[in-house]
């Protein structure tokens, strides 16, 4: 019998989606260079965040801290509310990260790189299967099936047995996306995924990313493609000098920026438009 006095919680569109990843007080130093200067940030399920900013603003470093491609100098990152790493007594800034924990995070937070980073000694299919076989310990046949499914999704099912060196940059990046997708990550990080592509190949990669957005995947994208960011994102972050200078909806940040610095940055992009 339900207690008539207790309110029944009904999941509704109004209830905020669960926070997956939470960052607090993130700092990153490279030697004497203070790249990230105290960032607080969280990603909820279904969010799509575009991170923009000039070169050297720290946007790639920020993204790379989220899956520990770079180790934060200080600050904590929490996954599902549990802070990662161990703190030794008396040294709150010296967080140690056991390898097993890093691997778990990376399994759940996938990444697509500017330079693809495909494994050249493996076929396209083997690339997409690698994480499933080595990390998830999946049976070969099962891994193969899932890898092929993801390759089909990015339109490269017919290239399964080709080595990456034979593919165009755009195709290689789509393989890299399929490789990340095969792991079924909860969050996908894109680090300037089209920046090393010839202009005519950018479209095919952006189409795949847009398709993922339509599926409601949680994604973070560092990009210079402001037009794409506008249509892709639910939230846009303008990073400058290692801090979040302006955060808001695409309309707020890209069309009606409040900060002078954001406006100056955007103006440089529209300078040559016609």
């Amino acid at each position: 019998m339900p207690d008539p006095i207790m309110p029944v919680s009904i999941p509704s569109a109004a209830s905020p989606p669960a926070t997956i990843l939470q960052v607090s007080g993130l700092h990153k130093w490279f030697g004497a260079l203070h790249v990230l200067r105290g960032i607080d940030f969280s990603v909820a399920a279904g969010e799509r965040v575009a991170i923009i900013g000039g070169s050297g603003s720290g946007k790639s470093t920020f993204l790379r801290c989220l899956n520990f491609m770079e180790m934060p100098t200080s600050g904590r990152i929490a996954l599902d509310g549990t802070p990662l790493g161990r703190v030794s007594a008396g040294k709150p800034d010296a967080v140690r990260y056991p390898e097993s924990e890093l691997c778990q995070v990376r399994e759940r937070v996938g990444m697509v790189f500017q330079q693809f980073n495909l494994f050249p000694h493996m076929t396209v299919l083997e690339n997409a299967m690698e994480g499933l076989v080595t990390v998830k310990r999946m049976k070969k046949a099962e891994a193969r099936e899932r890898a092929l499914r993801e390759l089909d999704k990015v339109g490269l099912g017919d290239k399964a047995d080709v080595y990456p060196g034979r593919l165009s940059g755009g195709q290689q990046q789509r393989v890299a996306i399929a490789r990340a997708l095969a792991m079924e990550p909860e969050i996908l990080l894109f680090d300037e995924p089209t920046s090393s592509l010839d202009p005519e190949l950018v479209g095919e990669v952006l189409r795949v990313i847009r398709q993922l957005a339509e599926e409601g995947r949680t994604m973070l994208l560092v990009t210079h493609e402001l037009g794409f960011a506008y249509h892709f994102a639910t939230k846009v972050i303008f990073l400058a000098d290692g801090v979040f200078h302006e955060v808001g909806t695409p309309d707020e940040v890209l069309k009606h920026p409040r900060q002078e610095r954001t406006r100056a940055f955007l103006d440089r992009f529209t300078e040559f438009s016609f």
Binding site: N67, M69, E99, L102, C103, Q104, V105, R106, E107, G110, M111, F113, Q115, F116, N117, L118, F119, P120, H121, E130, G131, T134, V135, A176, R179, A180, M183
Partner: peptide, 27 residues
Amino acid sequence: GQWEGAKALGMRHADVLRRIILPQVFK
């Protein structure tokens, strides 16, 4: 980038060495 590509999948250091780096190195 080869280390990063593999680590981003959640592979352990030893697995990256064995599966990704050494096969390329051997050649």
